[in-house]
Design a protein around this nucleic acid. Structure first.
Length: 880
RNA sequence: GGGCGCAUAGCUCAGCGGAAGAGCACCUGCCUUACAAGCAGGGGGUCGCAGGUUCGAACCCUGCUGCGCCCA
C-alpha cells in the first residue's frame, strides 16, 4: 500500500466529467480483482446474492436503487476488512422470455410449434446470446462491485442440477404432488400461474341477475360472468336461509341448456349478498370448485385453453368475452334477465406478464405442499435467525407464510426446467434425480411441463454456490448476510428462498438479514408506470448527471420502508454536490493539502482545526451507526451537510486565513486529513468521483480497498481528537458574529464583495480576538485605519457577552431597514420571553419538570431579557 | 370484507414528549482569486379535524375525515 505517499501537485481537471472517467475507473477495479471473493480467506465473510433480474430485462429505477444500496453495503464492508462476496446473475424468466422469442418468431411468420420443442429452446438460447443480459452492462455503468467470476444463470448446468435435486428431494419427501385443481390460467400465455403472478384490479364489468327455473320453482342468481352459466351444475343457498328452504334438494332448469341442476345448501354462501343464491360453476371458479367438491357435483369445462367456448350449440367457438353478451342477449330474449347493473366495479385478476384477464381453470398440475416449509420459514424469523428490516414488515411476512396456499409449480411452457418425471405405459410415475437414468422403452415419456421460474430462483442463495455439492463457497459464504429488495417482492423472494433454503440447507436460513426498501415514485408521489408515462430511465440520469449523482439521489431518498419520490431536480442536486466536493478537493490540493504527515499534536492545532476534527469524529461515528442500521438516507444526508455546510462553507474559509499564517503546514495536514476521511465515508455511495479525488490526494492505490474510518475491524484508522467543547463554542460564536455582520450588510445593501472598515470590541470579543483575521475575512471587513469614522454599529450578543461592531459604511445608513431588522429581532425576543416566563411562572412545571429542563428555560429567559434590553436601547438610539 | 400505513413550509419528506427542520421551488443582492452545477441574505407552517392523558403534545391515547398499500 502506498496510501501515505506525498502528493504536492494535482493533475485534476477543472471540472468532474463523469462520462470521461467512470467506465475507465470501473474497468480498473474489475481488472485489479477487487470484487473477486476468496473462499479461502481468513477474513470474516459478508455475502449478498443479487436478486437475479430477468434475462430479458433492463435496468429500471427500482433496480438502480436496489443495486446502489447493495453496492454501498458491500463496499463499506470491504473497506472494513470483510471478505465480501456480492454474487450477480440472472434468472431465465420463463414466461416473459418465451413470450419475447415467440413474438420474434411471429414476425417471421413461424410458431414455436413449427420449430418443435428442441428447436425452440435452441432458439431461446440464441436469443439470449445475442440480446439477453443487457442489464449486466447497465450494472457496470452503475458501478456495481459484483464478483463477475461467479456470475450465474438459472438455466446453467449447475443450477439446473440443483433444481432437479431439489425436485427429487421434495418429491421423495411427499412435498411435491400432482393434482387436479382450479388454477389461474392465462389464455394468452397458455399456462398456469401461481397466485402471486396474478395482479388484481378493480375493473368495470356488469352484474346480471338471472332467473333459473320457473313459477314457484324459480330462483334468481346474480353473476358478473354470465357466460359461465353454461357450466353450472348447481345453485347454492345458505342452509339457514328460509327463503329458499323449500327449494333445497329439488332441481331447477338451467336456461339455454335444457339441463336440470340441483339446489344445494352450503354454509359458505353469504345470504346477505345479492339474492342469497349463487350459481355454481365448479370448473371455472375456485369457490364453486369447493362447493362442487363438497356436494359431489359434476365439473364440466366449457372453455378450451384459449378461453373459447367449447360445445354448447350456438355459443361454441366464441371467445369468453364474445360469449358473455351473446348469452345475456339470449337470456333476455327468454325473459330471464331480472336485473342488470352496468358498470359494475369488481376485482378481476390479470396475468402479471401480459395483463390478460386470467381464467380460473380446472386442470392437472404439480404442486408444492408448502405447509411444513412455510412454517419453518415463519419460525426462522420468529426465532430471530433472520431479521427483517424494518421490523414492521415482519408482520406482513408472517401473514403470508402462515396462510400460504399450496404452490402450483408446473407451467405449460417450453423454456424452463422440465419436470423430471416420467410416465410409464402402465400408469407408472417415476421421479428422476440428476444422476439417474430416466426409464426408457416403449410407452415411457417425460412430463411436458416446465417448472415455475421461482422454483429455480428460490434456490439462488445456495445453488449459485455449488449446491448440492459441499463447496468451499458454501462453507465460507452461506448463510448470506443480507438480502436487499423492495417490500413488494417480499413474497416472491424472501418467502420462497426462505422455504427452500431452510429445507435444502438442513435448517440453515438463507440470509441473516432482509432489508426491504420502498418503491420509487415520481415527483408527485405517484407510482411509476408505463401507462402513466412517468417513468424515469436511470440510464438517462447516468448519461446526464453521472452514475454517482444517480446513486446519491437514490441513497438520499432511501428511508427504511418508505417509498421515495424522485425528480430530475433531485438528481441535479446530487450532481451539484459532486461538483462541490470536486471543487473543494481541488482547492485543498492546490493549496497543498496532504496526508503525508501525521496530524499535528492537539496543542499545535487552532480552534478551527480542533472544531472540524471534532465534528469529523462525531460524523464518522454517526455515519457508522446509521449504516449499521440500514439508514441510508440519514447517513448520506449527514455527509451531505457536513461536507457542504461545515467543511466547505466554514472550515475551508477559515483555512484560507490559516494558510497565509505561520502554521500553514498544520492546516494542510488537517485539510488533507478531513478530506481523506470524508472521501472514504462517501465512497460507498459515490464511488467514482471519490476514487478519482482520493487517489489524487493520497497517491494511494484505490479507495475500493482503502480502510474504512473508525470502527474495530478496520484496525484503527486515523486517530481523531475528541470533540473539543471550547473550540466548538468558539467557532459557534464566530459563526454567529459573522452571520450577524453579513445580515447587517445585506440589510444595508452593501455588495458582498465590498470591503468595509470596521472596529470590533466589547466584552464578548475577548475570546474571539484570536480569530480577528478570520472574522474580517469572512465578513469582508478591513481594519479601522486613519480617518475611520463609524457610521453604523451593531451589537451581537454571545454567551460571553456582547460584541460591538462599528462600521464605516462611508455614507448614510438605511435607518428604516435597520429599524425593521431590530423590530423583528425584538419581536422574536419578546415572544421568547413571554413563553419562557409563562413556563417558569407555572409551579407545576417547576415541581415536575427535570431540573436540567428548568435550567435551560431559565437561561433562555435570561437571554431573551438581555436581548430585549439591548435591542430596545439600539432602537432608541436610532436617528428618527 | 380483513389487515397495515400515511396526513408537518408551494412540492417531496425528516423529526415522534421539553425552543418547528432539510432538499427542491420562491424573493433580494452578488461572476468576492475552489465552485454561477456557485456565494451571501431572506420570506413561508395555528404540524388533517375533534376530544383526552401530561407541568408540557407535531410527537402518547380515542374518535372522525381524507389518501395509499397488501390480502380476500
Amino acid at each position: 500500500m502506498t496510501e501515505n505517499a506525498p502528493q504536492q501537485q494535482t493533475d485534476l481537471p477543472n471540472a468532474w466529467n463523469p462520462a470521461d472517467e467512470e467506465a475507465g475507473l470501473y474497468q480498473r477495479w474489475v481488472a485489479a480483482g477487487y470484487f473477486t471473493a476468496d473462499a479461502a480467506s481468513d477474513k470474516p465473510p459478508f455475502t449478498i446474492v443479487l436478486p437475479p433480474p430477468n434475462v430479458n430485462g433492463s435496468l429500471h429505477m427500482g433496480h438502480a436503487l436496489d443495486h446502489t444500496l447493495m453496492d454501498a453495503l458491500t463496499r463499506r464492508r470491504r473497506m472494513q476488512g470483510y471478505e465480501v462476496l456480492w454474487l450477480p446473475g440472472m434468472d431465465h424468466a420463463g414466461i416473459a422470455t418465451q413470450n419475447v422469442v415467440e413474438r420474434e418468431l411471429a414476425n417471421e411468420g413461424v410458431s414455436r410449434h413449427d420449430l418443435g420443442r428442441e428447436g425452440f429452446v435452441q432458439r431461446v438460447w440464441e436469443w439470449k446470446a445475442e440480446y439477453g443480459g443487457k442489464i449486466l452492462d447497465q450494472m457496470r455503468r452503475l458501478g456495481d462491485g459484483v464478483d463477475w467470476s461467479r456470475e450465474r444463470f438459472t438455466m446453467d448446468d449447475g443450477l439446473s442440477r440443483a433444481v432437479q435435486t431439489m425436485f427429487k428431494r421434495l418429491y421423495d419427501d411427499g412435498l411435491i404432488y400432482r393434482a387436479e385443481r382450479i388454477i389461474n390460467w392465462c389464455p394468452r400465455c397458455h399456462t398456469a400461474l401461481s397466485d402471486i403472478e396474478v395482479d388484481h384490479s378493480e375493473d368495470e364489468g356488469e352484474l346480471v341477475s338471472i332467473r333459473y327455473g320457473d313459477g314457484d320453482h324459480a330462483i334468481v342468481v346474480a353473476t358478473t360472468r354470465a357466460e359461465t352459466m353454461l357450466g353450472d351444475t348447481a345453485v347454492a343457498v345458505h342452509p339457514d336461509d328460509e327463503r329458499y328452504a323449500h327449494l333445497v334438494g329439488t332441481e331447477v332448469e338451467l336456461p339455454l341448456t335444457g339441463r336440470r341442476i340441483p339446489v344445494v345448501a352450503d354454509k359458505h354462501v353469504d345470504p346477505e349478498f345479492g339474492t342469497g343464491a349463487v350459481k355454481v360453476t365448479p370448473a371455472h371458479d375456485p369457490n364453486d370448485f369447493e362447493i362442487g367438491r363438497r356436494h359431489g357435483l359434476p365439473m364440466p369445462s366449457i372453455m378450451d385453453e384459449r378461453a373459447v367456448i367449447t360445445a354448447h350449440g350456438p355459443f361454441e367457438g366464441l371467445d369468453r368475452f364474445e360469449a358473455r353478451p351473446a348469452i345475456v342477449a339470449a337470456l333476455r330474449e327468454q325473459g330471464r334477465i331480472v336485473a342488470e347493473k352496468r358498470p359494475y366495479l369488481h376485482a378481476v385478476g390479470h396475468c402479471s406478464r401480459c395483463d390478460t384477464v386470467v381464467e380460473p381453470r380446472l386442470s392437472l398440475q404439480w404442486w408444492v405442499r408448502v405447509e411444513p416449509l412455510a412454517r419453518a420459514a415463519g419460525d426462522a424469523v420468529r426465532d430471530g435467525r433472520t431479521e427483517i428490516h424494518p421490523p414492521e414488515l415482519a408482520k406482513r411476512y408472517f401473514d403470508w407464510v402462515d396462510n400460504m396456499h399450496d404452490w402450483t409449480i408446473s407451467r405449460q411452457l417450453w423454456w424452463g426446467h422440465r419436470i423430471p418425471v416420467w410416465y410409464g405405459p402402465d400408469g407408472e410415475t417415476v421421479c428422476v434425480g440428476p444422476d439417474e437414468e430416466p426409464p426408457s422403452g416403449e410407452g415411457w415419456h417425460q412430463d411436458p411441463d416446465v417448472l415455475d421460474t421461482w422454483f429455480s430462483s428460490g434456490l439462488w442463495p445456495f445453488s449459485t454456490m455449488g449446491w448440492p455439492d459441499d463447496t468451499a463457497d458454501l462453507a465460507k459464504f452461506y448463510p448470506t448476510t443480507v438480502l436487499v429488495t423492495g417490500y413488494d417482492i417480499l413474497f416472491f423472494w424472501v418467502a420462497r428462498m426462505m422455504m427452500f433454503g431452510l429445507y435444502a440447507m438442513d435448517g440453515r436460513q438463507p440470509f441473516d438479514h432482509v432489508f426491504l426498501h420502498g418503491l420509487i415514485r415520481d415527483a408527485n408521489g405517484k407510482k411509476m408506470s408505463k401507462s402513466r408515462g412517468n417513468g424515469i430511465d436511470p440510464l438517462d440520469w447516468m448519461n446526464r448527471f453521472g452514475a454517482d449523482a444517480t446513486r446519491f439521489t437514490l441513497a438520499r431518498a432511501a428511508n427504511p420502508g418508505g417509498d421515495m419520490a424522485l425528480a430530475e431536480e433531485w438528481a441535479a442536486g446530487a450532481r451539484n454536490f459532486g461538483t462541490k466536493l470536486w471543487n473543494a478537493s481541488r482547492f485543498a490540493m492546490l493549496n497543498g493539502a496532504t496526508v503525508a504527515r501525521p496530524l499535528p499534536a492537539t496543542g499545535e492545532l487552532t480552534e478551527a482545526d480542533r472544531w472540524i476534527l471534532g465534528r469529523l469524529r462525531t460524523v464518522v461515528s454517526e455515519v457508522d451507526d446509521l449504516l449499521e442500521d440500514f439508514q441510508f438516507a440519514k447517513a448520506t444526508n449527514l455527509l451531505y451537510h457536513f461536507t457542504w455546510d461545515e467543511l466547505c462553507d466554514w472550515y475551508l474559509e477559515l483555512a484560507k486565513v490559516q494558510l497565509s499564517g505561520d502554521r500553514a503546514d498544520n492546516t494542510r495536514a488537517v485539510l488533507g486529513h478531513v478530506l481523506d476521511t470524508v472521501l472514504r465515508l462517501l465512497h460507498p455511495f459515490v464511488p467514482f468521483v471519490t476514487e478519482r479525488l482520493w487517489t489524487a490526494l493520497t497517491g494511494g492505490e484505490s479507495l475500493v480497498v482503502a480502510r474504512w474510518p473508525g470502527q474495530a475491524l478496520t484496525g484503527g484508522g486515523p486517530a481523531l481528537p475528541e470533540p473539543d467543547d471550547v473550540a466548538d463554542g468558539r467557532i459557534t460564536d464566530l459563526q454567529k458574529l459573522v452571520t450577524e455582520i453579513r445580515r447587517f450588510r445585506s440589510d444595508q445593501g452593501l455588495k458582498p464583495g465590498q470591503k468595509v472598515a470596521a472596529r470590533l470590541s466589547g466584552p464578548g470579543y475577548a475570546d474571539l480576538a484570536a480569530h480577528e483575521d478570520a472574522v474580517r475575512s469572512l465578513a469582508r471587513l478591513t481594519d479601522a485605519g486613519d480617518g475611520f469614522s463609524a457610521t453604523a454599529a451593531i451589537e451581537v450578543s454571545l454567551p460571553a457577552g456582547a460584541v460591538q461592531v462599528e462600521l464605516d459604511t462611508s455614507g448614510a445608513i438605511d435607518v428604516a431597514a435597520e429599524r425593521k431588522r431590530l423590530q423583528k429581532d425584538l419581536a422574536v425576543a419578546e415572544k421568547e420571553l413571554k413563553q419562557t416566563e409563562g413556563k417558569l411562572g407555572n409551579q407545576a412545571f417547576l415541581d415536575k419538570a427535570p431540573a436540567e429542563v428548568v435550567d435551560k428555560i431559565k437561561a433562555r429567559r435570561d437571554t431573551a431579557a438581555a436581548d430585549i434590553e439591548r435591542i430596545t436601547a439600539r432602537l432608541a438610539a436610532l436617528p428618527s
